[in-house]
Every structure is written in structure tokens, then in C-alpha cells.
Amino acid sequence: CGFHLRGVAQLPAAMSRTYLAGASMQNPVVRSLAQALRANGVTLVSDPQQAGAVLTIVSINTTQRALTVSALNQATSYALETTLVFRAHATQGRWKLPDQSISVQRQYSLSTAQLQSQGPEERLLQQSMTRELANLALLRLQAHAGAS
């Protein structure tokens, strides 16, 4: 049916040595993006001068919203959304990836008795959201690899 094993993911050539700007490693999304880049053969450098490309994290924000309410007007499920906005450019040459915005949503239900586990449950969902954001970000970079 035409399916074949995926080839090596082609990231833009300039990104072989990339400087990650605009965010600290404390942020789980940044850590997961860095891991995904390293897994695809990118060396992250700490000095922008030695970098072939600069990947700038423009913004990462997470919102939590009550999704459903009980008959007593208490939240019974929450929606989480994390939006990553990033851009990239080569230090030499004209390759440039304009601002890319990626949003990922998750939902979880929570009864009042489970309040204690809301934190741990959100952290679990955050982990799967950061992995998905990193993969989707990689897809964007790969799609623009040809032009570099």
C-alpha cells in the first residue's frame, strides 16, 4: 500500500550547529525540544558565534481552563493548552523560518476528591504535551529544510 520506513529526518543544513535563544532549560518544552534536536543529529552550542543557525523561542504559554462544571458549579474537568511560538534563521545565508505557532491541547477530568492529584496529573499531561510540541516543531523545521 505504498508505506515505506521513514528516511532520516532532514533538518536544515545550517542547523547542524544550532544556538537555542530566548528560553531557559528550566522550561520543560525547551528541554524536550533540545532533546528532539539532539536526537536528529543537531549539536546545540552555547555561543551564538559558533552556531550555523539560531532557533529563537518567541513564547511558550500554558493556559488552564475549567471545561465542565458540576451541578454545584465546581469544575469537573479542565483543559490544558500549551502554545509554542518559535522562529529560526541561518547565521550566514538567507535561510529563515518565520514565526511558527504550534498549540497542543489536553483534557482531564477531576472530581473534588482528586484535588490532591491535580498537580501530578497535570505534570503527566505536560510531559506528553512537550513531547508532541517538540515533534510538531521538528516537522515544521523539516518542511523548510529544502530552502536552506
Binding site: Y108, S109, A113, Q114, Q116, L124, Q127
Partner: peptide
């Protein structure tokens, strides 16, 4: 049981 609970199965939790 101090702070432990079970949540309905979600896709990400199937690999926990």
C-alpha cells in the same frame, strides 16, 4: 491513600 487516585484512561496514560 493520602494523595493517590485513578484517572480515566487517556491516550498518553496508556504508556504510563
Amino acid at each position: 491513600v493520602f494523595d493517590t487516585t485513578a484517572f480515566p484512561l487517556t491516550f498518553s496514560q496508556m504508556f504510563a
